[in-house]
Design a protein around this nucleic acid. Structure first.
Lengths: 226, 226
DNA sequence: CCAAAAGTGTTGACTTTACACCCATGC
DNA sequence: GCATGGGTGTAAAGTCAACACTTTTGG
């Protein structure tokens, strides 16, 4: 029974909402294998990485200027044959970026391009990355139901419509807006601000902030199913 | 930016219910590091492992005679420093064994002992294995709420009391038995058998079987919160 | 005053919780 | 006949789903 050297990468499924659509960050590979294919940002663990999460953070920072991003480990994919270079397991991470945050994309040394792609119009992807994105999307759907993950995709001040747009984009279904507002306001996790948004030339919408404190004090795990 | 060789192990958190208590399978390590400490069964990925899950399966089979066990990937622990031998990431798996199934424990070559330990009375553990068990226990609690995981801990025929015992052992809290029975029977996932259990010298209890088919046909994900 | 999005309540169906006693069996 | 765990019902409270119109603003 000889043990085998398995190399370890991290890959990041970074989601953001742009114009009401859920998008994922992809890079265009500069080198083989899968040269010129689109793929998830990621790479091998390096010597200075203290943890898998810090490796994921580093890889994400190589493609964007963002730091301090919400990162969560998703799953480790390690089937033999998933990488033509040999035995490579990848630890996939979910990253959530805030809408409206200025994200500057910059292709890192091993990429010839970086771009946001709508999850429902993805290009052909390298490796098993399509499967990883599908898995991440599913996880995000679940997270919206029982956690305040939606707020990680929004700026600190947002309208109820912005929040509903997150739910509709991620769940890919329409939601009744009366019930939606009622439920969120009743949960007591939104702090009403004395400000309004002036995006449209129509009636301005009230801005809200997510209250982490109030959320923590809820007696049970809340449910946000729509 | 040099990449670093990270070795990969799998570790298995195998749970079973014994006399109404949730127990976890541990081995006593025969070699350094942590010689003579209790630890999770597991080991390095070997050349014949086709996937991480098959490696987990193999490791579990080395300590027990069971196969065809429910296995689910939990989380990958990869912080630098978690293993004194160098950089080792471990992919942790959850395994659920059925109560009453004859499990024959046999210490594998690298163990001097194998035993079931109640999760609330664990010995000192090697590596970060205590943390892994805590994580696994938490995941199992969640799984009982929204999945039929409890049935993976029971034989194919069981009484409602057996089922309730699983919930009470895993959640570590008592449950109202009228509401418990009502909820499960209403869910329509239990098939009432024409048999009774004859464990006690008192009134025999009716046996039930879990109906996977009926479960699959439920319109939404059911919730089993108590 | 018009176009557009913001904002607002009620009802009926269903689900959840709390709670205590009788039943069937083996000895 | 008794000790033991098996098995059962109801009412009140809360939650969920369906449904359409009025308000506010800028131009």
């Amino acid at each position: 029974m000889s043990s085998e050297v398995v190399r370890v990468t991290v890959d990041i499924v970074a989601f953001a909402i742009h114009q009401g659509a859920l998008e994922v960050l992809l890079i265009k590979r500069k080198y083989e294998p899968f040269k010129s294919s689109w793929a998830l940002p990621g790479g091998f663990i390096s010597e200075q990485d203290e943890s898998l999460e810090s490796a994921a953070n580093r890889e994400l920072t190589e493609e964007t200027n963002v730091s301090n991003v919400y990162l969560e480990q998703l799953y480790t994919f390690g089937d033999r044959g998933r990488d033509p270079r040999g035995r490579v397991a990848t630890v996939a991470y979910l990253a959530l970026l805030r809408e409206g945050e200025e994200v500057e994309l910059r292709a890192s040394s091993d990429a010839s391009g970086v771009a946001w792609w709508p999850v429902n119009k993805l290009p052909e992807l390298a490796f098993d990355h399509e499967r990883i994105i599908t898995y991440a999307h599913q996880r995000l759907k679940y997270k919206l139901e029982y956690s305040p993950a939606a707020f990680k995709l929004l700026p600190s001040k947002f309208t109820l419509r912005d929040l509903q747009d997150v739910y509709e984009a991620v769940l890919a279904k329409m939601v009744d807006n009366r019930n939606f507002r009622k439920k969120f306001l009743a949960r007591g996790v939104l702090q009403e601000l004395d400000e309004t948004s002036q995006e449209s030339s129509f009636r301005p919408a009230r801005l809200y902030a997510f209250s982490e404190d109030d959320f923590e004090q809820l007696p049970d795990r809340p449910v946000f199913v729509f």
